[in-house]
């Protein structure tokens, strides 16, 4: 049972952060289907920092540098979306899909090259080990082993809620996703706000990526990407109605289903049912499909999302 809680917390942390990222992007008017790819880039950068840091680096150094690397990599990769979709008015679905493919391929190539170089040509794998880095993030409270990542997610969630509802910046960002012409007519730079939205999604997506690969694992194969976590986060975002506090709740719900697949054997009554583990893997996706079917009719996506803004066309 404790294991279930641990996994739930980790997956919830990932889903909350990535879904918040998607929320900021969509609220500014850009559909970000490339969250999956952003997570891969963030995770890779964070993992490489953990591998590269000298073995005597302090815990705090590891934590801080890893997080900076992951978020920075996420933001840089999100620029692929911003440039194409905001400046060049490209198809947002196509670009998001392309970024996902790009991320997996690039991560594989980079990590393999990285390993090859470090091992003098003996290790060609796309795998990174970061046991020490993984341990640096662990924190024991009584019997429960939690991770600094979870604390980080909670802190960022609170920040995001305050930011979303209380600041001038977020008010303007939200206006751009709903009615960019109105925002423009009161002197708001729609392009700049959309860049901000996409970069925020890069920041959150990158952090989500490193948590996904490092919170419960000490090694990761980068040719696998992040197994649809980014897309689950999109479903969480839709179910959360593009609002941070509701996103947090739905993330926890999804996380429970997701973690069942990892720990179903450890829970007595579930183990007795003899359901193969992979069936639990399907759960979150089936649940989200049903949930989307129930909510999509009334769901209020930001009105102007997916529509390139053209200042000339009035």
């Amino acid at each position: 049972m404790i294991l279930l809680i641990q996994y739930t917390l980790i997956f919830a942390a990932v889903l909350i952060l990535v879904a918040l990222g998607g929320m900021f992007s969509e609220r500014s008017g850009i559909i970000n289907l490339g969250l999956e790819g952003i997570m891969v880039f963030g995770g890779m950068a964070g993992a490489m920092v953990m591998v590269l840091l000298p073995s005597d680096a302090s815990k705090a150094t590891i934590i801080i540098l890893t997080l900076i690397a992951a978020s920075a990599a996420g933001m840089i990769s999100s620029l692929f979306i911003a440039v194409a979709c905001i400046n060049f008015k490209a198809d947002q679905t196509l670009i998001g899909t392309a970024l996902n493919m790009l991320a997996t391929a690039a991560a594989t190539v980079i990590v393999k090259a990285f390993n090859t170089a470090r091992s003098d040509g003996t290790d060609f794998s796309a795998k990174l080990d970061y046991v020490k880095g993984h341990k640096a993030f662990l924190l024991h409270i009584g019997e429960l082993e939690i991770s600094w990542f979870i604390i980080l997610a909670v802190v960022l969630l609170v920040c995001a809620i305050v930011f979303f509802y209380k600041t001038k910046f977020a008010l303007r960002l939200r206006a751009c996703g709903e009615h960019p012409q109105a925002a423009d007519s009161v002197g708001i730079n729609v392009y700049a706000m959309r860049y901000a939205g996409v970069l925020l999604s890069g920041f959150f997506g990158g952090l989500g990526g490193i948590i996904y690969i490092a919170a419960a694992n000490s090694t990761w194969h980068f040719d696998y990407g992040v197994a649809g976590a980014g897309f689950l986060a999109l479903a969480v975002m839709i179910f959360g109605q593009w609002k941070p506090e509701r996103i947090a709740l739905s993330a926890v719900l999804f996380a429970v289903f997701r973690s069942l697949s990892n720990v179903n054997g450890g829970i007595d009554f579930l183990a007795k049912l003899h359901i193969p583990g992979t069936i639990y893997n399907m759960f979150p996706y089936i649940v989200s499909l049903i949930v989307l079917a129930l909510t999509s009719k009334n769901s209020r996506a930001p009105k102007a999302e997916g529509i390139p803004y053209d200042k000339g066309a009035r």
Binding site: K166, T167, K168, L171, A175, H179, S185, G187, I188, R300
Partner: peptide, 28 residues
């Protein structure tokens, strides 16, 4: 404008201040 430049899901107050928001350190 003939077609109102208002954000549907914002409150009246938010629409009025949008673009000229009173704030302290960025907080409304």
């Amino acid at each position: 404008h003939q077609h109102f430049m208002l954000v549907d899901i914002f409150t009246v107050l938010d629409n009025i201040i949008l673009g000229a928001e009173p704030n302290k350190f960025g907080f409304l």
